[in-house]
Design a protein around this nucleic acid. Sequence first.
DNA 1: ACAGAAAATGCTGCATACAGAATACAAAAC
DNA 2: GTTTTGTATTCTGTATGCAGCATTTTCTGT
Lengths: 228, 228
Amino acid sequence: MNEITPLERRPDGGPGPIRRTALHDTLVSHLRDMIIEGDLPPGTRLHEGQLGEQLGVSRTPLREAIKYLASEGLVELVPSRGAVVKRFSAKDVKDMLTVLQSLEELAGRLACGTASDAGIAQVRALHDEMVARYKAGDRLQYYKLNQQIHTAIAQLSGNAALADMHAVLQTRLKRIRFIGHEGPEKWAAAVAEHEEMIAALEARDTEKLSEVLGRHLTKAWERVRDSV
Amino acid sequence: MNEITPLERRPDGGPGPIRRTALHDTLVSHLRDMIIEGDLPPGTRLHEGQLGEQLGVSRTPLREAIKYLASEGLVELVPSRGAVVKRFSAKDVKDMLTVLQSLEELAGRLACGTASDAGIAQVRALHDEMVARYKAGDRLQYYKLNQQIHTAIAQLSGNAALADMHAVLQTRLKRIRFIGHEGPEKWAAAVAEHEEMIAALEARDTEKLSEVLGRHLTKAWERVRDSV
DNA sequence: ACAGAAAATGCTGCATACAGAATACAAAAC
DNA sequence: GTTTTGTATTCTGTATGCAGCATTTTCTGT
């Protein structure tokens, strides 16, 4: 997608010493994005020397970031041969969506009980923004807000472990969703489902929300099925 | 629990060059065990120089292993201050068990449909072995086989993502369960529930298995509640 | 004696250097 | 022409060294 660019190591832009302490987090996010956005397609070997030079970072922090991502499941470590970007089969994706569905149903049930009105209002705000982006035809922003909404619902559950697991799966799936270009009618259906979701959440209708979230992901599978 | 001992870096025991390629995995497992078994209690700062010297490893691979464990959620990275063993509150544990329960119910449903007879037989074998350890009063082996059974059921689902998420939560909870000393009557109840589980699995009784797994974890919370 | 500031120590974060393993290539033998 | 083996290169795996931040200790002034 993009070219591989050096890391911005001085976020404030000013002179003076570089921010050393944030390099690890920055590197992890950067690599994660590069994988999600397709700069590093599945199967690519992560060449420490080369990649490090392109990013303007030495091998040590790069290796640490790669190990971190390996534990997240985005890359695979092969002894003596470095790391490669993990490749997901269609079954893998379906399996992940199955688990995600189960987690979101749980999150929906919990959220209806424990979420604050303010929290629900925030999700509503995200949703309205997303609909605006949809109407404007801005796919990228729509996609990002979509993810944010699902993440927000997971967090509304008040269950940190649940939000964690959800985030891990969501990250692994991001790349798939990123490339999944759905047609206009399917896109419209997805937006309609989201509207149902928010309504159920505002009504704190546990069963309804759980059901819609489940249905939403079943359809999500149909939408990406052919892209995998 | 144990003393901190140097890593065994030559698993074959014989002469010749040490197995270098496995160091990362070995270190990760070793540190994980040290955390689970209480050699590194929650809140402990992981001192790179000191810990590395005790393990007989230089700082670089140690740092990589720590970053890996950070992504697994066992340790927390504090900028400029290294890593500390993560501390879980009672609510954290309850939350993790809630998610684990949801995952196991899903696994039970899937396993009843897709598991092979051979796979079920293996779980039965583990169960019988576990009962034998129970009768012998061997708590440690009982505990380990108990974990293996739950892991095995997650794997029987045939859903790799599910098994993954289950394993992550199980690992985070291992320490809690390790210290949770239940009384004889509660122990007996747990064994009885396990017997129900296996029976339901062998009968491929989806609803029953799902229900028992759910109940089993609800009770598990009651058992550890006071230990946290 | 106490409070604040300055120096000192110890640790993390990053870079570089070195050793061993895997692979690629080339030359020789069949 | 094909296979095999030796060599060279490249990359990973590990160790070490240096610089900066955090904390603690000590010194100074009131």
